[in-house]
């Protein structure tokens, strides 16, 4: 699997100086610049994200890794302004996509970007699908919403997407409800719903954490192959260094709201510059690097 990635990886690997994360040769498709995210609670303000800067190049997979509470999910949700407001406040920084700052574009314009240019896959496929609506409809509604497709056309496209993400017997599954599907199938449906709008950027927030170990591998394989086929840029949020090793080109390590280290996966893993990264690597059993 990892070899598979390397064979088709078109990213030049910059060696050395991992902390500064030398700019990718291609223009970044998504650029997070000095992002600050606060959660204003009743008694205190939590600074969840403190000055995070990330660049996601066309067609690459950037993994953001860190323990829970490190601000990685808040960062990911900020891209589409999906943190619950209140209590969340975007306190500073920019998120640039196609020349626009996603933190300040009007809601309406953001609505056109969500699901169409930038799509998301969430952690828990059990709860992230609407339990009362057929899964096929939940895939198709993206196209009906963004492209104004007819019911039949959207259905055909959704069936195709379900087939592409490896849902067996899409015709039958289309009509089923989330509770009738296994966890792995549900996550495939989520991915189909994210993919069907042909996004340029896919944000996957811990896409395998809630799944069985055996299924985790399949879903990761799927994400990698889809990324390569469609040339999407993928922002992968995870706490699992094993996942990073298997899927990502570059990695950013987050700790207490800050990015402590960025660089090529191989560089970071072999020559971690930051102390926290080192401890993180040491705590991960038996990392198999390609």
């Amino acid at each position: 699997m990892t070899t598979d990635r390397q064979m088709t990886s078109d990213q030049p690997r910059t060696a050395g100086a991992p902390v500064t994360a030398g700019p990718p040769t291609t223009e970044p498709v998504l650029e997070i610049d000095g992002l600050n995210v606060d959660f204003r609670l009743d008694t205190t303000t939590v600074h969840a994200v403190r000055g995070v800067s990330l660049r996601l190049a066309q067609g690459e997979t950037l993994a953001v890794v860190g323990e829970s509470g490190s601000g990685k999910t808040a960062t990911a949700l900020s891209v589409l302004r999906l943190n619950p407001q209140p209590p969340c406040v975007y306190a500073g920084g920019r998120i640039l996509f196609e020349g626009r700052d996603l933190l300040t574009v009007p809601d309406k314009e953001l609505g056109r970007i969500r699901g169409s240019d930038i799509a998301m896959v969430f952690q828990d496929p059990m709860t992230s699908l609407d339990p009362l609506r057929r899964v096929g409809v939940q895939v198709a509604e993206v196209l009906r919403h963004h492209q104004g497709l007819s019911r039949a056309a959207a259905r055909a496209a959704a069936l195709e997407a379900l087939d592409e993400v490896g849902v067996p017997d899409p015709e039958r599954r289309f009509r089923q409800y989330p509770h009738e599907l296994s966890g792995g199938l549900r996550q495939r449906v989520m991915i189909a719903g994210a993919l069907v709008g042909r996004p340029r950027v896919l944000i996957a927030d811990e896409p395998t954490t809630a799944l069985d170990v055996t299924v985790q591998r399949q879903i990761l394989d799927l994400l990698v192959s889809l990324q390569q086929r469609h040339g999407m840029a993928v922002l992968l949020i995870t706490h699992d260094l094993g996942v990073v090793a298997e899927t990502a080109d570059r990695v950013a390590v987050m700790h207490q709201g800050r990015v402590v280290e960025t660089g090529d996966v191989l560089d970071v893993f072999e020559r971690p510059a930051d102390d926290y990264t080192r401890r993180l690597l040491a705590a991960t059993p038996r990392l198999e690097l390609a």
Partner: peptide
């Protein structure tokens, strides 16, 4: 949140 991520108002 999923629906919002799909671009629904």
């Amino acid at each position: 949140r999923t629906a919002r991520a799909k671009g629904f108002g």
